[in-house]
Design a protein around this nucleic acid. Structure first.
Length: 825
DNA sequence: TATGATATCCTTTTT
DNA sequence: GGATATCATA
């Protein structure tokens, strides 16, 4: 028996060996899915399959790289582990991008086309909506963008969209009857700009395969074996691509877990995995049900949750490991206290011998990271936050990239607009508007018009014309100098000649400092890329023959392409000894000894948004399942009774998921039904809340954090000039009478005007003088007017439930001390 | 045209 | 609360 098969259980081995038949591998959490996939590929190579016949697709670069490494390690020395290099392995997007670059001309694109990320494409949508003079209260960029994305992910081209009356009816209903025109214009402009967005990569591959059968045939022949990881998260466009490619050899193997389908918001279709056998009736199904990762308790708890879902494949996950510790449920009164409790628990784990890197904190939304970050920093717990804004999305980095993109692809209007007046060079909105208008009417790109057209005709005066010409000269000279430079020198040249570095130096704020550091880091990465490319270049990627002495400086295009699909997760982090903070979505596929799942409250997890989606709640439940099954030894769940949300303190009730878990798996020292109803001393609330102010002040100290502008001549930053020591209890303003009917509310609860050089100590005026009673009409600064439906005592304060007139606001329970409520006559 | 102050919107998850 | 759009002012 091959060495490769020795360490596999029976089900796993069957899944590895039967590589010639279409296969559905249903792999529960922690069931050795990656091991099966990598073993299968290594085994195929061992059996003589040529590696370049294998196409293996994942969702993240990280997963792809890891798999390639593991396969390399598995292939016996005698067979040359380097063969693993020739497997086509990568993310859907990266592989299709590679193909699209090669076949670009067939679709009418240059092969150096630009990739628009979400913010680029949103910018383009904004300009289009503006140009078409559509009312922007209904034509919201985000909504338009997600609708376009949805259409593309379902392979609905503008023509198909227009032909379908149900789509257009929906648009009329949503008061965006001209959506189709925006969609058309957006597609056209992307093409004119020689740009593709993320969804275009999938759509265009499909168009390519549909319209060029010879091209399809070529790739069908090349990719005789197709493997797809996380199949439950594929969308329709990806599904069709897979089917097309597999249409010749039918040797497709998909791996997934329906219980872990968590990307329907991105168009993923759980049906793809549920109905795989309809598409490939000869498919063999392999079920990997033994969980090797987690304790029995964790697996049991996770199962008890997922059983509540209806839409599932039949599968029973089990663990033969230790019974393990119960899942600890923690309750906090405020979100800050939650952070403190969790941080304390983390610290005591570490004292008990746990490594920081074995601990992860998972949350539903990125914004939740903030409080934990603060609590961790106070205790000196090292942590690393994934997600949120990645390096390549930062403004200064995007600006740099836009310069390079414009040089590579001058037709990129989005890049042009981004940098034509950055750093400011006196080319304002009016000028850019005129240029864009003229370009549009001539059917040219802005750059095209600016370099060949008559600027006076476009309505520019002499001054504006000069400035525009200067800009053109700048770009052209940067472009020409490129030939004489290394990639790194070119980057540096862009950074200096453009004036970006100069403007940050003048600004000389902490933000400017950190921007400069990021630019430096970008330049370093260009240098690194050059070196890596030159090392890579010594092999011919087609034959594998080493090419002696070939050293080619990579082009700017190659550099831009290499970073287009990078995400935060891909950054190599040498410094691994840190606690991990990330969203549950990002955590899929990872495992940690100790896992904290925080913010288990209704409307947060499950998210409010999920409630109206058809399968929304089930998907949230799967998300919870994913979160729980990340834990190997011990899981912790936490929630809070109050949370600072959208600028005000709100009450929360514990997540329904807490009561859905079979209680025998839980270590919970309280009754869930009590949560939210318990009286508690005002003191504690005040203490927690007081922390909040103090925290905000401290956070300015963090390096690279949000700094404050310090006027010249002030030697000490404002937060050090505070007269009062922060130790004492925060003061509250004495309650004052509520202003009469029709009064202005701007003074209610807004920040107390602060004298110069003093940080406001307490920012909430109290609008409570005992006049609140059930039935009273009140006004809230965020939610508008409503009627009090319930009042109860809460410590030294009162909880007031208000039914707001605004349907969207609905019913809220507020703490009268913090709610900015005013009485309406 | 650039800038700072004020109003308004948006709040999920991401390749 | 925070990011962005708009407005008012120099």
């Amino acid at each position: 028996m091959s060495e490769l098969l020795k360490n596999l259980n029976e089900a796993q081995r069957a899944a590895v060996v039967n590589y010639e038949s279409p296969s559905l591998i249903v792999a529960g959490a922690g069931s050795g899915k990656t091991r099966v996939l990598t073993s299968r590929i290594a085994y195929m190579i061992e059996q003589g399959v040529q590696p370049w016949r294998i196409l293996a697709m994942t969702f993240t670069n990280k997963a792809a790289n890891e798999m390639r490494e593991r396969i390399t390690a598995m292939i016996p020395e005698t067979l040359s582990p380097l063969q693993a290099r020739y497997i086509w392995m990568g993310t859907f997007h990266s592989i299709f991008l590679k193909i699209l670059r090669m076949e670009a001309d067939k679709l009418g694109y240059p092969s150096s086309f630009t990739i628009y990320d979400t913010s680029d494409s949103r910018n383009l949508i904004k300009t289009i909506v503006k140009e078409m003079n559509l009312p922007d209260d209904h034509y919201k960029p985000n909504a338009i963008q997600s609708r376009i994305s949805l259409a593309k992910n379902n392979l609905v081209t503008p023509a198909a969209y227009e032909a379908n009356p149900s789509y257009t009816a929906e648009d009329r209903q949503h008061k965006i009857p001209d959506f189709i025109e925006v969609y058309k214009a957006y597609m056209r402009r992307c093409k004119d700009n020689a740009a593709m967005d993320f969804d275009d990569m999938l759509l265009n591959i499909n168009i390519l395969f549909r319209d060029f059968p010879d091209v399809l045939a070529k790739y069908q022949e090349r990719f005789q074996y197709i493997l797809v990881d996380e199949y439950q998260d594929t969308n329709y466009a990806q599904y069709v691509i897979i089917r097309r490619l597999a249409d010749k050899h039918h040797k497709v193997c998909v791996v997934g877990d329906d219980a872990q389908s968590i990307y329907s918001f991105r168009g993923a279709k759980i049906e793809n995995i549920l109905k795989f056998r309809n598409d490939f009736p000869q498919a063999q199904v392999f079920k990997l049900e033994q969980n090797y990762r987690s304790t029995q308790n964790i697996v049991g708890a996770a199962n008890s949750i997922i059983e509540k879902n209806k839409n599932r494949l039949d599968k029973a996950s089990f663990s033969k490991g230790d019974k393990g510790a119960l899942i600890k449920v923690m309750k906090a009164y405020t979100d800050q206290e939650e952070a403190s409790l969790v941080a304390d628990e983390v610290r005591s784990l570490a004292r008990g011998g746990a490594k920081w890197s074995e601990i992860a904190l998972l949350y539903r939304t990125n914004m939740q990271s903030r409080g934990f970050e603060e609590a961790f920093r106070r205790r000196g717990i090292p942590y690393r936050i994934y997600g949120g804004m990645s390096f390549y999305q930062r403004k200064e980095v995007k600006d740099m990239m836009a310069y390079m993109q414009l040089i590579v692809n001058p037709n990129d209007d989005v890049a042009f607009r981004r940098i034509v007046n950055y750093p400011t060079r006196g080319i304002g909105d009016t000028t850019v508007g005129r240029l864009a208008q003229a370009a549009l009417s001539k059917g040219q790109s802005i750059w095209n018009f600016v370099t060949t057209g008559d600027l006076k005709e476009a309505g520019l005066n002499g001054g504006a014309e000069r400035k525009v010409k200067d800009f053109v000269a700048l770009i052209e000279s940067l472009s020409q100098e490129r030939a004489t430079m290394t990639l790194y020198e070119f980057g540096l040249n862009v950074a200096t000649k453009s004036g970006i570095i100069g403007s940050y130096k003048i600004e000389n704020t902490p933000e400017a400092q950190s921007a400069l550091q990021n630019i430096e880091e970008l330049l370093n990465s260009m240098q690194l890329f050059s070196e890596q490319q030159q090392a890579e270049m010594q092999f011919d990627p087609a034959t594998g023959e080493p090419l002696e002495g070939v050293k080619v400086e990579p082009s700017v295009t190659e550099w831009l392409q290499s970073v287009a699909l990078l995400t935060d997760m891909d950054e190599q982090e040498e410094d691994r000894e840190k606690v991990t903070l990330m969203t549950i979505h990002s955590a899929k596929g990872l495992e940690f000894k100790y896992v904290f799942i925080v913010g288990l409250e209704e409307n947060l997890f499950p998210s409010m948004m999920s409630m109206d989606a058809a399968d929304g709640l089930e998907e949230e439940r799967r998300l919870f399942y994913v979160a729980l099954t990340r834990a190997m030894e011990k899981a912790y769940l936490s929630f809070s009774e109050m949370r600072f949300k959208w600028g005000s303190m709100e009450f929360c009730s514990p997540s329904r998921f807490l009561s859905e878990i079979d209680p025998k798996y839980l270590d919970m020292a309280f009754d869930l039904s009590e949560a939210g109803d318990r009286d508690r001393p005002a003191e504690t609330i005040r203490k927690n809340y007081g922390d909040h102010n103090e925290r905000a002040r401290e956070s300015y100290d963090r390096p690279g954090g949000r700094g404050q502008y310090r006027p010249a001549g002030e030697q000490r930053p404002p937060w050090e000039r505070r007269s009062e020591p922060s130790k004492q209890m925060p003061r509250y303003e004495a309650p004052r009478p509520v202003e009469g009917p029709g009064s202005r509310f701007k003074s209610m609860g807004t920040r107390v005007a602060k004298p110069e050089n003093e940080v406001a100590t307490v920012s909430h005026a109290v609008a409570d003088s005992g006049e609140f009673k059930v039935g009273q009409r009140v006004m809230h600064s965020k939610f508008g007017i409503g009627t009090i439906s319930h009042i109860e005592h809460f410590g030294g304060d009162r909880k007031i439930t208000v039914l707001f007139d605004d349907q969207a606001a609905g019913k809220k329970t507020l703490l009268s001390k913090y709610a900015k409520l005013a009485i309406v006559g």
